[in-house]
Nucleic acid binder design. Structure first.
Lengths: 214, 214
DNA sequence: GTCTATAAGGTGATAGAC
DNA sequence: GTCTATCACCTTATAGAC
C-alpha cells in the first residue's frame, strides 16, 4: 500500500528484475500444470519441480495456492494478446474473423486450450477460487460480442434478448468444441467447426449477409 | 463372470434386493457430490456421510473411487432417459426438438447439469479415469446427430465434413451454454439460447427450412 | 529468496472384528 | 454389509536457518 520500498523513479534494481522474472517462470509453470491436471489435482510441489525450486519458494512469491491461480488466470489473458499480436480487440464483423483466427491458432497449442477448458469448467464447483473471475470474464465477453453483433446487424435490430443469446451461443460453441477436440483431436476439426458455428449464428441474425472467413 | 452366486431363476432374495438398493443410494449420493465438487475434490467420506455409512462401506460396494465414478457416469445416462420418459432416441428433426426440450428440463436441475459439465471438462486432464468414457460418449453423440442432420437435409447433401462439424457444434453449444448458465443463471437463458443456437445451425445446413421448436 | 523441517490435516485403500 | 482401526501417502502452509 505504501511505497516505502520503491527505489528512486525510473530505476529498477537487478534484484527486483530477477524477482519479477521468477514470478513469470512460476506463472508459466503453474499454467502448464493446472492445465494438464486441473487446479485441484495440480500441486505446488509439481509446479515447483518444473521451476527448479521447492514449493516453499512458490508460497513466498504468491502467498497461497488460490492466489497463484488467480494470477495465472490474469496472466493467460495477456499471453493471448501477445501471441495474436493484437493491441486492442477488433470491432464489428472483424471481431468474428478474429475469433476464427484464434480457433486456428488454438489448434496448434493444446496445452493452453486445456488450461482454459479445464479451469473454466472446474470453476463452477462450489466455492472454487476462480469462480468470480470466470463469471466476470464470461459477462465481459458476452457484452463485447453482443455489441459486435449489434453492429453487424445494423438495420435489422434483432432485439436485446436475441443479441445476448447469440453472444452466449458463440462463446459456448467455441468452448464446447475445445473440450471435444481435446478428447479426440482426430475426430474434431477445431477451426473448421468453429467457423461453421459462428457463421451459422451470424447468418441467422443477419439473414445470411455477414460471413466471417478468419 | 460366472453365475456361481445366482439364485434359482426368477427368484431374487431380499438380501440381494437391499444390496442393489444400497448401490443406487451410493450412486445418487456420488452424483451429487461429484457434481458439486468435481471428481477430485469430492471424497468418499463426503459421499458416505450422505448415504449414512462410512467410506469403507462404499469401497466394499464399488472397489475403488475410480470404479465408482465410471458407474456414476453410466447411471446418469439411464436417469436421463427415465426423466424424459423416452424409451429410444428420436430420429430426424424430432431429435432436435428433443434436445431443446432437454435444455428446458435441464434449466430446472442445476445439480445434474453441473455433474455433467464439471466431469466432462475434468476428464480432459491427464490420466483422468473418465476420459475414455467421455471420448466414446462424444463420438456416439456426434454420430447420432450427424445422422439426424443428414435426414433433415435430405436433398441438399451438405457433405460429410459439414455434417460432422455441425454435429460437433450443436453438442458444443449445449455444453458451453451449461457452463455459462451455471456461473450466472440470471444472465443466461439456457433453453432460449440453446434453441437459438440449434436453429441457427439447422437453418445454415438446410437453407432455412428446418426449425426445432422443442 | 530459497532452503529444510515440520505442522496439521486430508485422502484412498486394506485388514479384520462383528 | 458395515464397522473401526490403521496404513501409507499426499497436500498446503508456516517457522526459522542460511
Amino acid at each position: 500500500m505504501t511505497d516505502s520500498g520503491t527505489p528512486p523513479m525510473g530505476k529498477v534494481s537487478a534484484r527486483q528484475r530477477r524477482s519479477v522474472q521468477r514470478r513469470m517462470d512460476i506463472l508459466r509453470a503453474a499454467m502448464g500444470i493446472f492445465g494438464r491436471r486441473g487446479y485441484m489435482r495440480g500441486s505446488l510441489i509439481e509446479i515447483a519441480e518444473v521451476v527448479g525450486i521447492t514449493h516453499a519458494g512458490i508460497l513466498h512469491h504468491f502467498g497461497s495456492k488460490d492466489e497463484l491461480l488467480l494470477e495465472v488466470l490474469r496472466y493467460r489473458d495477456e499471453a493471448d494478446f501477445e501471441e495474436l499480436a493484437v493491441e486492442r480487440l477488433p470491432e464489428g464483423l472483424e471481431l468474428f474473423d478474429h475469433l476464427v483466427r484464434t480457433a486456428r491458432l488454438n489448434a496448434t497449442r493444446p496445452g493452453i486450450v486445456q488450461s482454459y477448458a479445464v479451469l473454466s469448467a472446474e470453476s463452477v464447483t462450489d466455492d472454487h477460487p476462480g469462480q468470480e473471475w470466470f463469471r466476470n470474464r464470461f459477462a465481459g465477453l458476452r457484452r463485447i460480442l453482443a455489441e459486435a453483433l449489434r453492429e453487424v446487424c445494423a438495420g435489422h435490430e434483432p432485439g436485446e434478448e436475441r443479441l445476448d443469446a447469440a453472444a452466449s451461443v458463440i462463446i459456448a460453441l467455441m468452448d464446447g468444441l475445445q473440450v471435444q477436440w481435446l478428447l479426440d483431436r482426430e475426430a474434431v476439426d477445431l477451426a473448421y467447426a468453429t467457423a461453421l458455428g459462428i457463421n451459422a449464428v451470424l447468418a441467422d441474425l443477419t439473414g445470411g449477409k455477414a460471413v466471417a472467413t478468419g
